[in-house]
Simulated scan of single mutants.
Amino acid sequence: MKLLGLHHVSILTGKAERNFQFYTKVLGMRLVKKTVNQDNTESYHLFYGDANGSPGTEITFFDIPGLGHTYPGVSSISSTSLRVRDTDSLLFWEERFTQFGIIHEMIVKRANRDTLAFQDYDGTRLILVADNGEAGVRAGVPWEGSEVPREHAILGLGPVTLTLAISEPTVGVLTEMMGFRHVGSYPSLAGDFPDIQVYATGEGGTGAEVHIETRPDLPRERPGRGSVHHVAFRVPNEEEYEYWVKRISSFGLMNSGKVERYYFKALYFREPNHILFELSTDTPGFDVDEPIESLGERLALPPFLEPRREEIESKLRPLELQ
């Protein structure tokens, strides 16, 4: 049984309002779920994705007002990619970032693909990656409810980069336990460091890769706003989820056991470099409690939190998303 690819990436933000402005107004993504952090219901959890909230397209944020800066380093998910159709789209985004005053770099090659690195308002390190017709995991459905033209819309998650002091233990987990395969490498853009190694799962392509950067010169990351909390990988259904629950435990890794998130079932564990991985089911999806046409328009709570709605809403700070 193979993991299908990336499911979602969850990041920390210091201000949900500015975060919403960036991801919906600048990037043109759809807010597909406005809910709470189920482990701390006094904090919002926002999910942005494609038009249908498809698995593999979500970048999510935990709202923690007043959160301090991130100090980058190893044992981190150091960058998150977002897919666009082609290199022409990168040219559109390069001009748009300049227009909006968004910190960005030049278009460069990573893993033989055209890419454009940039940062959001929290300093989250992001990369647009051009599919250019490449085979692999299917892209998402463009959201047409923004001013971004359909042909340049963000189509889902691309590769995540893990930055590590010593890569071998993490590579062992990816390949021996999770079934990833080595598919290539490319030179580090940071200087005279080892090539970045590329590992893929499922059908491969931009939506199914983990890139490993080895940087023994760096200290360990001190997380803050803009840092990645965890990356989740796609499990197609509950039957295969049961398989992975048993498999992770059989390798002796400490893990969360089964976690019911309502929109998906989850399993969390830390790999040897202490990065938090999650396995998440594609089913039932984000439209289980809201019609697709009105995703993200109200505060959604799973059934096990719904009886506490009045209490939860009373403890949440007012949040005006426009």
Rank of each mutant, 00 (worst) to 15 (best):
G207I: 12
D122W: 02
R222M: 15
L126T: 02
V171H: 07
E94Q: 13
K33H: 02
A139N: 04
A117I: 04
L116I: 02
L321K: 04
V183D: 03
E239D: 14
F47T: 10
L267K: 00
G53W: 06
G66V: 12
P65K: 08
E58C: 11
M178Y: 02
V231T: 12
L128M: 12
T35K: 07
P216S: 03
T24W: 06
M29G: 02
D282K: 09
S227F: 14
T201M: 09
G28N: 08
T60E: 03
N112L: 13
G158Y: 05
Q119P: 05
N237A: 05
T98Y: 15
Y199T: 01
Y48P: 09
S256T: 10
R125G: 12
T201H: 05
E94F: 04
G140F: 07
E311V: 02
P236E: 04
F100K: 02
E271I: 12
E306K: 09
R308I: 07
V160L: 13
L174W: 05
T124D: 00
E313L: 14
F100Y: 13
H211C: 13
Y48Q: 08
S146V: 07
R225V: 13
T206M: 15
V183F: 03
V173R: 01
Y23E: 05
G184P: 10
S256W: 06
S76T: 09
M1V: 13
M254H: 13
R18G: 11
V288W: 09
Y44W: 01
Q38L: 14
L12T: 10
V148D: 00
N37C: 04
F20N: 06
S249H: 12
E320P: 01
E260W: 14
N19D: 11
I212F: 09
R110W: 06
P169C: 08
H7T: 10
V74I: 15
V245S: 03
F233A: 00
R138S: 14
F264P: 11
G207F: 07
N132L: 01
E242V: 14
L46D: 02
V235I: 14
L91K: 13
V141N: 12
H229M: 03
L157Y: 00
D63N: 06
P318F: 05
A200M: 02
T60S: 02
D192I: 03
A130P: 06
P55Y: 05
T281D: 03
Q119E: 15
T41I: 15
D287C: 06
V173Q: 00
E293S: 15
G252F: 08
E95V: 02
G53H: 05
G191L: 12
G66P: 06
P223A: 03
G156F: 01
V210W: 10
I102C: 01
R110D: 09
L6P: 04
T163G: 06
Y71L: 14
N132A: 01
L157D: 01
G56Q: 07
G207S: 09
A135S: 14
G73W: 05
P72G: 07
G179N: 08
H152W: 06
G257T: 08
T57E: 06
